[in-house]
Design a protein around this nucleic acid. Structure first.
Lengths: 140, 140
DNA sequence: TATTGTTATACTCTATAACTATA
DNA sequence: TATAGTTATAGAGTATAACAATA
């Protein structure tokens, strides 16, 4: 069991390193890519909404949006009905980048699972579900 | 396949959050715990050796060791045969903490896998091995 | 000359708290 | 009063580069 946990942790680390390298190729850090990912799912969003989605404080969002504006990925647009708020909105480049992230995600899933025998894949995902359920019990 | 990747990523995130909470209870951050873990495996080590083990620069080790000395987990002892080097060495508290980390690790593995049916566990670990192998191919 | 660990400097991410403008 | 986002300040982790002491 300890070995299984070690391999799960190894998977997490190597996966993170690999994904980080891909993000850097697209001019993003992990945190900035996370924001781009959520913005892609939600459409133009207030910074409050993004803070909730990413689980960080509004102050952290200010920094991430500053960097993404600087990099030409997003703009801050005035909220149509609340002059306190801004709507973080993709530029063309941001849109392209978000779609690229999605392609990377699909491609990675294919590389990891694509040529895995169906029975192995089912066994893996079944175990994964059980582990995730246990983990959520622990956290609660 | 995309869903399987998403669940692997979810596992990584929740596992990391859970372990981080446990580390904080022991007065450690993730990076400092990583150093403690390696020191436990290797015994008293030079900062160069720790930099290699953790995959960071010697400068980063200086900061981590400073914090661990401050927290009473380790001391810097003179190297017996090389006056340039220091041997990072556990205090009693550091020793106890390292053993505590090991117990936490075993306990977590037990919670995650302990009551899993043997066939489910085997299916999971087999899939895990395949995924890890694919991932290491990708990274290479 | 090469290595060990330091200081100097900088960047990313995060947090809390005080503040401005608006609701 | 409450909310959206900012500035101010701080801490953790990391990197590169220049440097001192020692090998």
């Amino acid at each position: 069991m300890r070995d299984a946990l070690n391999r799960v942790l190894e998977l997490a680390v190597v996966l993170n390193d690999d994904m980080t390298r891909d993000l850097e190729r697209r001019g993003l850090t992990g945190s900035r890519a996370h924001l781009v990912w959520e913005l892609h799912r939600r459409g133009p969003s207030t910074q409050q909404a993004l803070a909730g989605a990413l689980g960080v404080t509004p102050r952290a969002i200010t920094g991430l949006v500053d960097a993404l504006v600087e990099g030409g990925f997003v703009t801050r647009e005035p909220h149509p009905r609340d002059r306190r708020a801004t709507l973080v909105t993709f530029t063309k480049r941001g849109e392209r980048t978000a779609k690229g992230l999605e392609r990377d995600h699909i491609e990675l899933a294919g590389k990891l699972f694509g040529d895995m025998p169906a029975t192995t894949f089912r066994g893996f995902t079944r175990g994964l579900d059980v582990v995730l359920a246990r983990l959520h019990e622990i956290v609660t």
